[in-house]
């Protein structure tokens, strides 16, 4: 229901073009902070950097896709792992920008940080053109994130209990080694096997490495994967407890300034801007 209005606009655009009322081209844009990305520029960059995996149609079927595991993202469905928005919703421009900037650990998607902010914004604008969803809908507001509670023993204990209660262990294992009873059965939305994250290896997480990123992964889920959103099941305070407990499962991580460092980085933590009211 909520999307009707946007769909109406989209249909309107089609009608408008179809009727030939002037050669109006609607700029496909992205807005990241004060930057405006343009799809026309993004297309050239996409051809240079991205097309080999994500393909000329953005369907994740580029010439290298058969050799890549995990498979490149299919942009056409509009389903994205790393979001600040609820499960099932479109990501904000900022979310996509961060993904391009950060890359995805344990995948072939590198960090495109060496590209300029403008170039990354342009890429986001172009990537959005592959899915009609971005013309039909607007991403909802990012989930709010109350400030982090103290990572004390009580919080960790509560997180441990929630880890059991929420069946996190079914996939991630009792000790967080990614070896739960359901681990072997998991597939992504294209049917390819996908292993649950093994906390003990201590690499950064799919969608970042700060506690805030971890909180967001818990509450938004990783759409397209078996990782659900816990927004319905956990209160914010409980989610922070789970975050604190998960940190204790990262055996191999030297725990120093774990959260602080990434907050400062380009493309790191910043105020959500993708869902500004139009």
């Amino acid at each position: 229901m909520k999307h009707n209005r946007m769909r109406a606009h989209f249909a309107g655009i089609l009608v408008l073009l179809f009727a030939g009322v002037g050669q109006v081209t609607f700029a496909q844009e992205s807005h990241i902070g004060g930057l405006t990305g343009e799809a026309s520029r993004g297309k050239k960059l996409y051809r240079r950097y991205c097309v080999g995996c994500h393909g000329p149609l953005g369907d994740g079927r580029g010439e290298n896709a058969p050799w890549i595991d995990p498979k490149p993202r299919d942009f056409v469905t509009g389903t994205f792992k790393c979001r600040s928005t609820p499960t099932g919703a479109l990501p904000t421009d900022e979310d996509l920008y961060k993904s391009v900037t950060r890359g995805f650990v344990n995948s072939n998607m590198p960090s495109w940080l060496p590209l300029t902010r403008q170039q990354r914004a342009d890429l986001v604008a172009y990537v959005k053109t592959f899915s009609s969803s971005f013309r039909e809908e607007k991403p909802p507001s990012p989930l709010s994130m109350p400030s982090e509670s103290a990572a004390n023993q009580q919080s960790i204990q509560s997180g441990n209990e929630l880890y059991q209660k929420m069946n996190c262990w079914s996939c991630h294992g009792k000790e967080g080694r990614g070896d739960g009873p359901s681990a072997q059965t998991l597939v992504d939305n294209r049917g390819y096997p996908i292993p649950p994250y093994d906390f003990s290896v201590g690499t950064r997480f799919k969608c970042g490495e700060s506690n805030q990123d971890l909180y967001r992964i818990l509450m938004t889920g990783l759409d397209g994967t078996p990782m659900p959103s816990f927004a319905n099941g956990l209160t914010p305070a409980q989610a922070w407890d789970v975050v604190h407990y998960i940190r204790t499962l990262q055996m191999n991580v030297k725990r120093k300034k774990q959260t602080a460092e990434n907050e400062k980085k380009d493309g790191g933590e910043s105020k959500p801007v993708g869902a500004q009211p139009e």
Binding site: Y49, G103, F104, V105, N106, S107, N108, M109, P110, S111, W112, L113, P114, L115, T116
Partner: peptide, 15 residues
């Protein structure tokens, strides 16, 4: 720019 960074990281993408 991307190639320069790749080379600077010791031929690594960092994933």
């Amino acid at each position: 720019d991307f190639g320069i960074a790749f080379r600077d990281r010791g031929y690594q993408l960092g994933n």
